[in-house]
């Protein structure tokens, strides 16, 4: 058999497009990811709470950064993933991409809530009030609203394929708007400290402080992967409930 073209990606990558294979591949990945998540989150939390030095100004109250920053980063990344998955579903009509986009929305919304809550708890000792109309808090709140809009639209449309396509369009419109909203809100009012991690510069805090933060961020990413895979597997089963392999799977167990 002559190979007409070189394969750039391994075979399992193409198999992800089929709900059945995607279900099985996710099932194989889940234990490993869960273990890594557990180790990273547990280790990172212990490191952050017990061994990282206290801030010279904020004392121990700064330690909430180890929850606040990862959840804020993840809430934004999750929107990107949702929009990209939506676009893939819209363009190539891949069912699995639609399901990924749908599973992303509730996870992203809850991460945005977590970022807002930890921000409020951190704001009380630092700024003296639970809520400040500051640029970054406000843009996180708007991100939360965008998630709510996507979820509301998805649940309002009965036909599943129409709902997936409509939410994909909305997510893409939101993706174009996120930078505009971010910068307009930033010019409007800011009190918040600048971002902790930048790709181009070294972090301003000492290594003993940002190393556990990095561990926590990676841990949150793997946690997100676990949560996404669990939701995705449920979604696949729910949508493919009439197909033969799901019936077989349920009867065997």
């Amino acid at each position: 058999m002559a190979k007409a073209e070189k394969k750039w990606l391994p075979r399992w990558f193409y198999q992800l497009a089929s709900p059945r294979w995607c279900y099985q591949i996710c099932g194989k990945l889940l234990p490993g990811f869960s273990l890594v998540t557990l180790v990273l989150l547990l280790g990172g939390t212990l490191w952050a709470l017990l061994f990282a030095p206290a801030d010279y100004q904020q004392g121990n109250s700064f330690r909430i950064i180890y929850l606040h920053v990862p959840s804020a980063i993840l809430a934004q990344s999750c929107y990107m993933l949702m929009a990209v998955a939506g676009a893939i579903g819209l363009i190539w009509k891949m069912k699995v991409a639609d399901m990924v986009a749908k599973s992303c929305a509730p996870i992203g919304a809850s991460l945005a809530v977590l970022a807002l809550l930890t921000g409020a708890i951190w704001g009380k000792p630092t700024w003296g009030s639970w809520w400040v109309w500051d640029a970054r808090l406000t843009s996180m709140l708007i991100l939360f609203f965008l998630y709510l809009g996507v979820m509301a639209l998805n649940s309002a449309i009965e036909s599943e394929s129409t709902a997936a396509q409509s939410t994909a369009v909305l997510a893409l419109v939101g993706l174009v708007n996120i930078p505009i909203i971010k910068y307009s809100v930033e010019w409007w009012n800011t009190l918040h400290q600048p971002a902790t991690f930048k790709l181009t510069e070294k972090p301003a805090m000492p290594a003993e402080m940002w190393m556990p933060l990095l561990v926590m961020v990676i841990g949150f990413y793997t946690f997100f992967a676990v949560a996404l895979m669990l939701r995705l597997r449920n979604e696949i089963l729910r949508r493919e409930r009439r197909s033969g392999w799901v019936k077989e799977l349920l009867l065997v167990k």
């Binding site: 609203f145 909203i181 307009s184 809100v185």
Partner: peptide, 15 residues
């Protein structure tokens, strides 16, 4: 529903 979808996107114009 339309207000839920659109209002967050109106914010830059408002500002």
């Amino acid at each position: 529903l339309i207000s839920l979808l659109v209002l967050p996107l109106y914010i830059p114009v408002l500002i």
